[in-house]
């Protein structure tokens, strides 16, 4: 049974199921391991910043930033999965994401959930 968080196919922890639900459909939780989390802080680089500044004139999507944050979020999820893997979980349930800007030009991407063992 494959779990696919968009690019999870090439994740090292591809077999860990991630859901925003409180359980995994069709399976039963047999053990709780508690909270697992992953976070990363990324800053924009100057080239992208200049491009975004130009794009700011006409509005709309800032593709460079979207990509940057997607990459960063992937990293955060990966770290969360690493923790889950460490405690021996095979699923992470009730996953939530949070983003906060910690400094000028830097953002923290944060993912957390509950590591469980399902059967």
């Amino acid at each position: 049974m494959a779990s696919k968080y968009s690019d999870q196919a090439n994740s090292r922890f591809g077999e860990i199921i991630i859901t925003t639900l409180e359980g995994v459909p069709g399976k039963e939780i047999i053990e709780h391991f508690g909270l697992v989390q992953g976070s990363t802080i990324r800053a924009k680089h100057v080239g992208r910043d200049i491009m975004a500044g130009l794009k700011n004139l006409v509005g709309g999507e800032l593709k460079g930033y979207t990509e940057l944050l997607q990459e960063a979020r992937k990293e955060a999820v990966e770290r969360m999965l690493q923790q889950a893997n460490f405690v021996g979980a095979n699923a992470v349930v009730n996953v939530r994401f949070a983003t906060s800007s910690v400094a000028q030009g830097a953002a923290e991407l944060f993912a957390y959930g509950t590591a469980v063992k399902v059967q």
């Binding site: 779990s3 696919k4 968080y5 968009s6 999870q8 199921i17 991630i18 459909p25 999507e61 997607q70």
Partner: peptide
Amino acid sequence: AALFLGSVV
């Protein structure tokens, strides 16, 4: 079940 995410700036 699987997690899906969409984001845009």
